[in-house]
Nucleic acid binder design. Structure first.
Lengths: 335, 335
DNA sequence: CTGAAAGCGCTTACAG
DNA sequence: CTGAAAGCGCTTACAG
């Protein structure tokens, strides 16, 4: 673990001054091609590695992006994070990812740490109950930050918000079931009072109201376990319900498992539409209808929007809603 | 976005020299408590943020760990990465995560980038077909690195390897099915010649050989889609097979879906054991028996092993195999 | 196009 | 316990 060569070593080896080496490093057009080649040869020979700490110290912007995710184990967020990270990587940016596990304290801690590391931007899918402290620190540090998927700080003029058009998704799913002849449709899952629950359910509420159908909501955690319980619950206490829009695919998949246990035929006896369209939807039996959020594209677009901001100073709109689509499959259409 | 205060500003504000501030920053015991308090008050008042680039430049080790994952979208790797990241975070280390998507070129690129950022260690679940270039660069940079889950570089004395005891897992799963009376057991899934496939299958092969039972292997991608196809395939062309050890839970879950489609009762007509024990196993119907790998613990232990290495200079063993357990559920035991 | 010089914000001996 | 000084490896004007 001997000392690494510096630009001075490279300069000596190539027979130029260290400024010239620095210029080559920055791809300056001002350096003669032959000189550039000499320098590059020297760097290769000496096994030179660029020291970003030194560069950052002198004022050059770092190419580090902080990506903070409330629940990295959830496939939906994983997909988002992986897509964003790869989009950043394609443009030469490195990503520091942290999972906060919905813990506001961890969130503050990782934000502080990333600020110290000099990240040049934040993309945050925040934990709920985040204290204002989290965003305050970012604001004081003057670092551009976007909130995605959950709007915690109301000042979207400071922290632009990007998410998916959940309300429309809920509406389209509900209308789809009505078009199939369903009248007794429930909305299953989602923790009460959470913005995302409210958004997804608002579309359902609105369409049901338009048709003057009665709404039913069984709130609950967005998990398979809750979905399974909900299926059993509906079967014993809400016999009239014969179709559901689920808060998430995990809930819908749990319901699929629950109905399989008690022998209810999903797709004919009972129709289900999930939400998110995770990969598994097209692979389970029966195939699960779902509102596709195209998380991968969303992650990529968010990354690019952020790069536009920090590179070209083109600030994203205060609020951006990406389109969602209904993917109809066996669980609502039948076999 | 005004300039941030430096230790010099803090020193002035607190009426001490900047060395003293630096000492406080490093929690040196040499500073008087009252002085420390003054300095801390000044830092709070000025909204001081520590500049790690500057510190790193002067020689202090960075607290950055590079975590490189071949497929971050796979829940198994997500779980590993999230656990490792959180274990690092608990000890005050930040993690740069990159997903290589099995692309050796991206892998080389992110390794280079992380070296430039001065990561003080690498934990790598490498892409297959990685050129030796990837590890060579790390070696030349003299950065401690562990390979996990896949051993690409044979020099485990340089790059310690940590994984799970897959061979024993395969053996235990097979023996479990034999204990239940099965004789015609196949091993389903896993790409041929991949080390992990060979390891997981070797346990199966060995136990089958001990009992002088005939082995059957249907290789294939570790995906739900392949599992579903394999179920149909077995049903039409391998009628005698009535039990399987699957390469992964995804394959097993796919088979569950496939058998559901064609009306085969899993748990009685046919027994299935998966591999990995992802969360979903205990939530599908029928509950899926699986070889539990305890990925979360593995991720945490790996992180701690790495910290022992870089903090206390306690190098991990060349090869480490973490224990796996069979979790028997309905898909093998019956309802 | 290239060189010499100053300085980014810290840490590290070294005196006191 | 605290101060003054040097230096980490770069970048950035500024001359030439």
């Amino acid at each position: 673990m001997k000392k690494r060569p510096t630009i001075l070593d490279v300069a000596r080896h190539a027979g130029v001054s260290k400024s010239t080496v620095s210029l080559v490093l920055q791809n300056s057009p001002v350096v003669r091609d032959t000189t550039r080649r000499d320098v590059e040869k020297a760097m290769a020979a000496l096994n030179y590695v660029y020291n970003r700490s030194a560069a950052g110290l002198r004022g050059a912007a770092t190419d580090l992006i902080g990506l903070i995710i409330n629940d990295l184990r959830n496939p939906f967020f994983t997909e988002f994070a992986a897509s964003a990270q790869m989009a950043f990587a394609r443009k030469g940016y490195s990503t520091v990812i942290a999972n906060t596990d919905e813990d506001p304290d961890i969130q503050v801690q990782v934000i502080d740490s990333m600020i110290e590391h000099g990240v040049s931007a934040f993309v945050i899918s925040p934990a709920y109950d985040a204290t204002p402290a989290a965003f305050e620190r970012i604001e004081r540090a003057g670092i551009p930050a976007m909130q995605v998927l959950r709007q915690i700080d109301p000042r979207t003029d400071v922290f632009p918000f990007a998410s998916l058009d959940y309300a429309t998704g809920g509406a389209v799913a509900t209308q789809h079931l009505i078009d199939l002849g369903c009248r007794h449709i429930a909305f299953i899952g989602g923790l009460e009072d959470r913005p995302i629950t409210l958004e997804r359910r608002s579309g359902y509420n609105q369409v049901m109201a338009e048709h003057q159908f009665k709404t039913t909501h069984l709130p609950g955690r967005p998990s398979r376990a809750f979905g399974r319980d909900a299926a059993l619950e509906l079967n014993s206490h809400h016999k009239s319900i014969n179709a559901v829009v689920c808060f998430s695919d995990l809930v819908a998949l749990g319901m699929l498992a629950g109905f399989a246990e008690i022998g209810v035929q999903v797709g004919s006896d009972f129709r289900i539409v999930g939400f998110d369209d995770i990969e598994e939807c097209s692979l389970v039996y029966p195939r699960l209808s779902s509102v596709r959020c195209n998380t991968a594209l969303f992650g990529e677009d968010t990354a690019n929007a952020m790069l536009d901001w920090i590179v070209d100073d083109k600030r994203p709109p205060d609020t951006q809603r990406y389109k969602v689509d209904l993917i109809a499959r066996q669980s609502s259409l039948g076999a």
